Computed example of a mutant assay.
Amino acid sequence: MKRYILVRYGELSTKGRNKKRFTQQLAQNIKGVLADLTPNKVVAGHDYLTVYPPAESVDIALERLSHVFGIQSYSPVIELEKDMEVIRDQIFAILDGKDLKGKSFRIATKRADHDFYLDTNAINRYLGEAVAERYKELRVQLKRPDLVIKVEIREKYALLTTEVYKGAGGLPVGTSGRALLLLSGGIDSVVAGYMALKRGIEVEAVHFASPPYTSPQALQKAKDLAKILARYGRQIQFLTVPFTASQEAIKQNLPSPYLMTITRRMMMRVASRLAEERKALAIVTGESIGQVASQTLESMLAITDAAGYPVLRPLAGFDKLEIIALAEEIGSFELSIQPYEDCCTVFAPPSPKTKPKLEACQHYETKIDVKRLVEDAVKHTEVENISAHEINEFNDLL
């Protein structure tokens, strides 16, 4: 008898000749999130993937798999002899420890071995009658029962499970290339990162810090948000960009209504240079059309002009309540609303331009040394690896 976790592919089943590349990436990602649970083994097959965690760590592995993109569903399974009495007795062993009063059940059998001496209906009937006879408090219910006992008869063995966990869906992280996420520390950008990860993009987080105007707590908050993102497939590279000199130059030399637009244009220039160095293919932001002054279409046009790479906006069509709901779902909301200012808010003008003119932006930028400021910011950017495990309690920062 063997125990392991059976992982079922979702969208990957449509990938045709490219499927192997996707399944191998998924296997690599699962190995990454289970790396500290040793020994473990992950095997990618054509129709499903098997995970062999240490026996004492199965529950931990089941929880971590819920955050791995590319999985439709997964189940802890028991591999048994193809013997009906052995299968029946194992079902009894599982059910003996459960509170079954008032519950319903059904047997669901798949038979890949068509030479097996019982057909699907006969297996369902034999096991169903055995369970009903032993557990009088259980009732048979074919539609939407409380408990589904799944049996699969394969060529060399049988599989048994009573639990199916819903996977995160999407594509395995790393199958769609790499992008840089502008991670501010607010509600929106981390959700945008989650959406990018779900489409298979390997995300690296770029955070603009402006000490002393922004605090160490604000920086740590952004890192902890990156740790939340790291749960969803792989570790996150976190890039801290020193942005004080750029913001001071903009504040001292440019008219107030254009401060926000040109600040974001500078961010795009820095991010584009970093994307070139990091071999990224795009920049991801948490912008939502019309949410604030810098997110009107006119503002987005002026800001994107400064980018040398495609700018992906996964939340463009979301309203704030939808974004908050997703933030709560992934566990980032309470951290995001902690009151630490990011560099966009500490220098925010009282009346930012909602329809900035590109020509005006380009004219005002001649008043500062754009090239030098970008080069200095890129040169002094610090990079560190962020792991999903051991997320700091934010109260430690207070």
Rank of each mutant, 00 (worst) to 15 (best):
A280W: 08
M266F: 13
A245C: 02
S294A: 05
M300I: 14
Q217K: 14
M267Y: 09
R269M: 10
P216N: 09
A218F: 01
E277F: 05
T240E: 15
R269W: 05
I289E: 13
A282L: 02
A275F: 10
E277P: 08
R231I: 05
L259M: 12
I283F: 01
Q220R: 14
A226D: 04
A293K: 02
A249S: 15
I283L: 15
L297K: 11
R265Q: 00
G233S: 04
A245E: 14
E287P: 02
R269L: 01
G233L: 06
L254V: 04
E298C: 00
T261F: 07
N253K: 14
Y213W: 08
A249Y: 11
M260S: 12
Q237F: 10
Q217G: 03
G290W: 10
T240R: 01
I250G: 08
A271R: 12
M300H: 03
I250C: 03
Q220I: 00
Q247F: 03
L225C: 01
R278Q: 06
T261G: 00
P212R: 03
V284R: 06
S288G: 09
M300P: 06
Q252K: 14
L259V: 14
L274Q: 07
D224C: 11
K227N: 10
S272L: 13
I236S: 03
P242H: 11
T240P: 10
I250M: 07
M266K: 06
Q291V: 12
Q252R: 15
I289L: 15
V241A: 10
Q235A: 13
R269N: 06
K279W: 01
R278H: 13
K251D: 05
I262F: 10
Q291G: 07
K227E: 07
R231G: 08
A293P: 04
T240A: 13
I262L: 13
S215P: 11
L274F: 09
I228D: 00
I236C: 00
A280H: 13
P242K: 13
I250N: 02
P216F: 06
P216I: 11
T214L: 01
E287M: 00
S215C: 13
K251W: 12
P255M: 11
T285K: 12
E276I: 09
M267V: 08
T285E: 04
F238D: 05
P257S: 04
R269Q: 03
P255C: 12
K221F: 10
K221A: 13
R234F: 02
P257W: 09
K221C: 09
T261H: 02
G290N: 12
Y213D: 03
S299N: 14
Q217I: 12
Y258G: 09
V284P: 08
V241C: 04
Q247K: 00
P212A: 12
K251T: 15
R265G: 03
